[in-house]
């Protein structure tokens, strides 16, 4: 983990609620796709965690969904703003045993988080199929970016307004061996229930510190309690003990 200052170089509004932020600084602590950063937002006490979408030299890319005061303030910042970041957090995806034909399933704000993974897998000679799932056509982003990388892309929208009609579960009907998924918890949970092949899930959580100290983001797993921030955010499928639905 590294604490350092980054400069906001680009702030692009991709959809009504998703911004792409490009930040320049020391990216040396980021070692695997699927890791995340903690961004200190001016005026907010707690940092905000975001998956790293891409790293190119000294520029990292985040896709930020505006979901509250903190992300709203972050996405309103002008280019040139300096931000305090913790980088190189979390485990990232395990790329040691990836099949020749991995399927990536991204939902909503999780789509951007799979971009760096797609890039890394294509560099390793894999045939990457990306299923990008959105609520509606207006929410779509990064479709062309995945295509430009060389991934095969299938878009799903829940209302059928673009691409195939359906949700992330429909993506499992695409030919695949192993699966990598990032998106809302409900989507990940249904994929974990339905997917019979090797699966890696990148979780999101409300975090305190982001580096394993506060125990704020603990989940239950087959191996006991685990911290999403330090032991994750990527977990193997079939290992998470999802909370009792009656309690939700």
């Amino acid at each position: 983990m590294l604490q350092s200052t980054f400069t906001l170089k680009e702030n692009n509004r991709l959809t009504p609620s998703v911004h792409e932020l490009k930040l320049q600084g020391d990216c040396s602590a980021i070692t695997a796709p699927g890791q995340f950063v903690q961004v200190s937002v001016p005026g907010k006490f707690l940092r905000r965690p975001f998956s790293v979408c891409d790293v190119a030299d000294d520029v990292l890319t985040l896709c930020v969904r505006v979901s509250g005061e903190g992300t709203d303030a972050l996405c309103a910042l002008p280019v040139g703003t300096e931000l305090d970041l913790l980088t190189g957090l979390g485990n990232g995806f395990d790329l040691s045993e990836v099949s020749p034909m991995p399927l990536l399933i991204g939902g909503g704000s999780g789509v951007g988080a799979l971009y760096g993974l797609a890039k890394a897998l294509l560099q390793r000679g894999r045939i990457v199929h990306a299923a990008l799932c959105f609520r509606t056509a207006e929410d779509m982003y990064y479709v062309n970016q995945f295509k430009a990388l060389g991934a095969e892309v299938t878009v799903f929208t829940e209302d059928g307004s673009a691409g195939e009609a359906g949700n992330a579960l429909f993506a499992l009907m695409l030919p695949h061996w192993d699966v990598f998924a990032c998106g809302p918890l409900g989507m990940l949970r249904s994929l974990d229930d339905a997917c019979e092949n090797p699966l890696q899930i990148s979780l999101e959580a409300r975090m305190g510190c982001g580096f394993g100290a506060c125990m704020g983001c603990t989940i239950e797993t087959e191996d006991g309690p685990r911290r999403v921030c330090k032991d994750g955010p990527v977990f193997q499928g079939q290992t998470i003990v999802w909370p009792d639905e009656n309690e939700e």
């Binding site: 006490f45 707690l46 506060c214 704020g216 603990t218």
Partner: peptide, 20 residues
């Protein structure tokens, strides 16, 4: 102890709340 169910972290203007 596993502690309390999540979410167990929240924020205030100049601080944070925990219910770990």
């Amino acid at each position: 102890r596993l502690g309390n169910p999540t979410p167990r972290i929240a924020e205030g203007s100049c601080g944070m709340l925990n219910a770990v």
